[in-house]
């Protein structure tokens, strides 16, 4: 159930230069949220009219956690918030990931700020899952995935943390066995992962991003090109309502 209210902030801290984590006391969101869903966070400065979509990185009993990168005018306001300050939220929004069937092996592939949205998924997958994380340089949050017993492989552009190269190059090197692939990250990475999974014949769920206004499906601002199996033509679906998770096979990547 979607809700709109002010949540108190707890334990905000900088994980890496420019990358922050905060806990939001939001029982209404925590009770109903599923991995892969997101919230709309309203910048405290009222002059920023539009909310910023941020994924849920962790869902606890009465609170949720988000991890965000300071990018521009909206996200740069969030680090100034202190414990007990409140922030206006709306959520949980979108459709999350579909968990694997019992006995299926999963591969989770994340790139950059696409990594946090995969954490709760990784925790909730009941069976085997191998995690591949790609970074520009120093890794972050890889320990959180190891923390619940996942095997984690790290790639980075600089070789910091192990493998030097893209996360998909690492996946191809290790060639894990998988019945399902879950991915979140930059569009280019998602496309490469989707094409790789397609070649392997493995179904892949990708979490997409697009600029949003309403965040709930009313304005048609957040269009993504999707072609459903059996349909003659593509159509624009809404990332905020029909996604953000889509079947990688259905996304029309080029054009």
């Amino acid at each position: 159930m979607n809700t709109y209210y002010k949540a108190a902030i707890r334990n905000q801290k900088e994980l890496m230069p420019g990358i922050w984590k905060m806990e939001l006391e939001a029982p209404e969101i925590a009770h109903s949220a599923r991995p892969g869903q997101f919230i709309q966070m309203y910048p405290p400065d009222e002059r920023n009219l539009l909310a910023r979509p941020i994924s849920l990185a962790a869902i606890h009993g009465e609170s949720v956690e988000v991890v965000y990168r300071v990018v521009g005018k909206g996200t740069e306001q969030f680090p100034r918030l202190r414990d007990n300050d409140t922030v206006q939220l709306m959520g949980p929004l979108g459709d999350g990931f579909t968990l694997p069937e019992a006995g299926e092996r999963s591969v989770i592939i994340g790139g950059g700020l696409g990594i946090p949205p995969l954490l709760e998924l990784s925790k909730r997958i009941p069976g085997e899952a191998e995690v591949f994380l790609g970074y520009a340089d120093a890794p972050f949050m890889d320990g959180d995935f190891r923390g619940h017993g996942r095997k984690v492989h790290v790639a980075s552009q600089t070789g910091n943390g192990g493998f030097r190269g893209t996360v998909l190059e690492l996946v191809e090197t290790i060639a894990p066995l998988a019945d399902r692939v879950y991915a979140c990250g930059p569009r280019q990475m998602l496309q490469a992962v989707a094409e790789w999974a397609e070649r392997q014949g493995i179904p892949v769920q990708v979490s997409m991003e697009e600029r949003m206004a309403c965040g709930i499906g009313a304005c048609l601002g957040c269009a993504v090109k999707i072609q459903k199996p059996g349909e003659k033509d593509w159509q624009y679906l809404r990332v905020c309502r029909d996604g953000p998770v889509f079947s990688g096979r259905e996304v029309v990547w080029n054009g």
């Binding site: 002059r47 920023n48 909206g74 697009e210 600029r211 206004a213 304005c219 048609l220 601002g221 993504v224």
Partner: peptide, 17 residues
């Protein structure tokens, strides 16, 4: 079908669609 994305931009005191 509508236009390609991005379809939304925030501006000073408003937005573009």
């Amino acid at each position: 079908k509508g236009n390609p994305a991005p379809r939304i931009a925030e501006t000073q005191s408003g937005m573009l669609n």
